[in-house]
């Protein structure tokens, strides 16, 4: 037990070292790229070609296979950024800030994708691109918070100061996550409630939710692989003065 604990601390301590993290990311990356490619390929073919059409919405419901994963990722990425910001503010581990900085644009892109796919889906089902529904509004706020975080980082001449300011803003911004999550339960809205919950079976047949689950997992693997890839570039950029980076890029 004791040895295990010491081992864990050693692992965390090592994780704080940019060089070691760079190598670890490099080793983990291929597995996540492969998993993402397999899951997304199988999920896309299954969901677009083999899962049955909806009895009400017909084939237009298939937008769900992009819409739900994007919306889930938009929130998960923010939670991951919040976690990284806490680690950065409390333990001053610079790698945590690098991770938060490379995750933000992906989170913003996923929020935009969720809003866009929802707007496209809105035409056949609700008859409108946009409605001032609680879920839609809170997602739009989320997009502005992401943009604010990215803009704030860019505004500081000294990156270390910008990093801390962004971490504080991320911690403030996390209040929006529960609002998005519960917006469909607190208000009577046009938007349907959550598709997946941990405790209950989805309200659709297995042939519909299985490919959706694959797509969600595929999006997560893609996010992880991309984050590892971009984190490596970020480490090289910020540690460009150290000897090991010069030797690595020679």
């Amino acid at each position: 037990m004791r040895g295990k604990q010491i081992g864990m601390w050693k692992f965390i301590h090592k994780l704080g070292s940019p060089k070691w993290c760079y190598q670890l990311c490099g080793r983990l990356q291929p597995a996540f790229w492969i998993a993402a490619a397999v899951l997304l390929a199988v999920g896309a073919v299954w969901s677009l070609a083999f899962s049955p059409p909806d009895y009400q919405m017909g084939d237009s419901y298939r937008i769900i296979y992009v819409h739900v994963p994007a919306a889930i990722l938009a929130q998960s990425v923010f939670l991951a950024m919040t976690f990284a910001s806490v680690v950065f503010l409390v333990w001053k581990i610079k790698l945590a800030d690098m991770a938060a900085s490379v995750m933000a644009p992906f989170g913003a892109a996923m929020t935009l994708l969720g809003l866009f796919s929802g707007a496209v889906w809105g035409i056949p089902t609700w008859g409108t691109w946009w409605t001032w529904d609680a879920r839609l509004t809170s997602m739009l706020i989320q997009l502005f918070i992401y943009i604010g975080i990215i803009a704030l980082r860019g505004a500081f001449a000294r990156p270390e100061q910008g990093a801390k300011a962004v971490a504080v803003l991320t911690l403030v911004g996390v209040v929006n996550i529960p609002i998005i999550k519960y917006s469909v339960s607190w208000w009577n809205t046009l938007h349907q409630p959550a598709t997946f919950t941990l405790t209950e079976r989805p309200a659709m047949p297995e042939s519909m939710w299985m490919p959706l689950l694959l797509m969600v997992l595929g999006f997560y693997c893609f996010f992880t692989a991309l984050t590892l890839y971009r984190l490596r570039s970020e480490i090289l950029k910020r540690e460009s003065r150290t000897r090991w980076v010069r030797e690595a890029v020679k």
């Binding site: 509004t137 706020i141 502005f144 918070i145 943009i147 604010g148 803009a151 704030l152 505004a155 803003l169 403030v172 911004g173 209040v175 929006n176 609002i179």
Partner: peptide
């Protein structure tokens, strides 16, 4: 910082 300030703050004013 003025314009940036509005970008950061307005989303939180909406509720």
């Amino acid at each position: 910082g003025g314009v940036l300030l509005s970008l950061l703050i307005l989303p939180f004013y909406i509720p």
